[in-house]
């Protein structure tokens, strides 16, 4: 997969990336293997200096970087935190990354941060609010952002439209792209009794700028029905790989990230997951 010349760093290549962990820094710099780009959580690089920013700066000289926010609370009820937008804008300014993405979720309320991506009902009111928040972010950063579909464990009685209808409307209204998390699609579909392939088939082609793949845990709800948990602590499950093939057939080769955030493995294990994504992407490109 490696290219002969310098890799353009202003866009993500349709190749595997991984979520960067500091413990993998030396291994990545030594031999990234199939990994052609890296993703970081914006909030982990909002300190003033030290090793995190130094490592990031070194990585950004060599790899396209995707900045993935977890703290903007785009789905939140209140206005976006101006201080946090400032910090994000500063990071995006010096790093000049290839991509920025955030979540269709909320994580803060009245200044308190909950450290999790919390769900929102899908209604006209929430659509208007999220669209307005995306406009603010895109105006402030001066670029198109990608919005990630959540993993859902429950549904809201007041929701009056599907998640894919909601996302399609957001794309049309704001011009944002989508970060399609295939593991989240599989989790939500399993947990809510939906067809994951039908979900993928309802996502607008051309809007998907990145794909996420990750592992999940299996649990059960009060009635004994399967309840999948988005844990990012193990290899990608086989049905998620199959769904990934289905998505690639629809969207073509898309930059694909392996996320592994808890019980982070040694580099070769993560690189092997990326190699599996590279094979799927290669088959798609050859088809």
């Amino acid at each position: 997969m490696s290219t002969a010349g310098p890799i353009p760093r202003d866009r993500l290549p349709p190749a595997p990336g991984v979520g960067f962990k500091a413990r993998h820094f030396a291994a990545i710099m030594d031999d990234p293997g199939p990994v052609e780009w890296l993703e970081i959580h914006a909030e982990n690089y909002m300190g003033d200096g030290g090793r995190p920013l130094s490592q990031l700066s070194t990585l950004a000289d060599r790899f396209p970087i995707s900045v993935h926010g977890v703290g903007l609370s785009i789905g939140g009820e209140g206005p976006l935190d101006p201080g946090h937008l400032d910090r994000l804008s500063r990071l995006m300014g010096w790093l000049a990354p290839a991509s920025f993405s955030e979540h269709l979720a909320w994580s803060t309320h009245e200044g308190a941060y909950f450290g999790d991506l919390l769900p929102l009902p899908y209604t006209q009111a929430t659509l208007d609010r999220v669209a307005a928040h995306i406009d603010v972010v895109q105006d402030r950063l001066g670029r198109r952002m990608l919005l990630e579909n959540p993993s859902s464990y429950l549904a809201f009685a007041e929701s009056d439209r599907s998640e894919t209808e909601f996302l399609t409307d957001l794309v049309a209204r704001t011009g944002c792209g989508l970060l399609l998390d295939i593991n989240n699609v599989f989790i939500s579909a399993t947990n809510l009794g939906l067809d994951p392939r039908a979900y993928i088939d309802a996502v607008p082609t051309g809007a998907v700028g990145e794909i996420h793949l990750a592992g999940h845990d299996e649990d059960h709800d009060d009635s004994g029905r399967p309840l999948l948990i988005d844990s990012h602590n193990r290899p990608v499950a086989d049905p998620v790989w199959a769904l990934y093939d289905h998505a690639l057939a629809r969207f073509g080769p898309v930059p694909t990230l392996i996320e592994w955030d808890t019980d982070v493995p040694d580099w070769p294990v993560l690189a092997a997951e990326a190699a599996r994504a590279a094979r799927a992407l290669g088959q798609q490109a050859a088809a």
Partner: peptide, 24 residues
């Protein structure tokens, strides 16, 4: 206002968020 797929109450499903927040 939170539902399981059969329309019943969310129950343990809400606890996933509760656990994620506290444990995270």
């Amino acid at each position: 206002g939170l539902r399981a797929p059969d329309g019943g109450p969310a129950g343990r499903r809400y606890d996933v968020y509760r656990n994620n927040v506290t444990i995270g």
